[in-house]
């Protein structure tokens, strides 16, 4: 019974790995296809020669979507890892003293009470846009919920009898943190990072769409969607549908995987 999610998660992980490998290798075999303009084939609908159609400059949409997803993947991954790192550090910091704990809790609650898209925009804008700014902005706004979980976990393990017993055997604080506390947090961090991941991707796309994110010359999903907006009224549906669908699928796949993993661990 309770082994079923494990198997399912393993299967899912396999499929996901294949897709990720496809995405990550795309930058090598795509070459400059995403940027290559064909003025004789502008705004072509999907067909056998143009699989997902072309945009206003005659660029292949399938290549641009793939490149955009790959870019989003990297940005999302970096932001999720950075966010997890911030969450872990602050949760650990909160363990040191009750004052620090109160401060961290206050910070978490404050950040959670602010709509984070606004915060995201402000930070990305202040940092001047670009890939780095997006990563930092997403990481800085997405750590609180994970930090809250990690803090609660740390609190419960720290008072577990086996930690008290470990101390009774003369084990130092460092040993206890390294051997008892951190291994307990690792699965939570993993799942937390995976759950942050789709959020980070979506917000990267949103920021780019709003113009404070990635450089418009890069084939990012947000850029593609912003472009598509301009042509939507002309009936060029494929410009928006395919990048949007690609983003949706990637986010869903990761989200599902994270949910399964949480059940399995």
């Amino acid at each position: 019974m309770n082994h079923q999610p494990r198997l399912l998660a393993a299967g899912y992980a396999g499929v996901l790995c294949l897709l990720v490998a496809l995405l990550l290798s795309s930058r090598f075999w795509l070459g400059d296809t995403p940027l290559h303009m064909q003025f004789e084939a502008r705004l072509m609908p999907p067909s056998a020669s143009h699989w997902l159609g072309t945009d206003a400059l005659g660029r292949e949409l399938w290549a641009r979507t793939l490149a955009g997803l790959s870019l989003s993947f990297w940005v999302g991954l970096s932001a999720a890892l950075l966010g997890t790192l911030i969450a872990l550090s602050l949760a650990s910091l909160a363990m040191l003293s009750s004052t620090l704990d109160a401060l961290v809790s206050l910070l978490i609650d404050t950040l959670l009470s602010v709509p984070h898209l606004i915060l995201l925009l402000l930070i990305a804008f202040a940092l001047g846009g670009g890939t780095q700014a997006v990563i930092i902005a997403v990481a800085l706004t997405h750590w609180p919920s994970l930090a809250r979980v990690l803090r609660a976990e740390l609190l419960s393990v720290r008072h577990a009898p086996y930690v008290a017993i470990s101390k009774g055997f003369g084990k130092r604080q460092g040993f206890i943190v390294w051997h008892h506390l951190l291994p307990h947090l690792l699965p939570h961090c993993l799942v937390g990072a995976l759950l942050l991941f789709p959020h980070a991707i979506l917000h990267e796309a949103a920021l780019t769409f709003l113009g404070v994110g990635l450089d418009p010359s890069q084939p990012a999903i947000g850029v593609l969607l912003a472009d598509a907006m301009r042509y939507l009224t002309g009936g060029y549906w494929w410009l928006g549908v395919f990048p949007g669908l690609g983003l949706l699928l990637m986010v869903l796949a990761i989200e599902r995987f994270a949910a399964l993993l949480r059940k399995a661990l």
Partner: peptide, 28 residues
Amino acid sequence: GVRPVQWLPQSPELAVNPRWRVGKILKE
């Protein structure tokens, strides 16, 4: 150091790290 008076709680399930194998628990 090792406390000369050791404490044994009621439920052994809580007194061991569930992520450790029994051998490691003993050797701690």
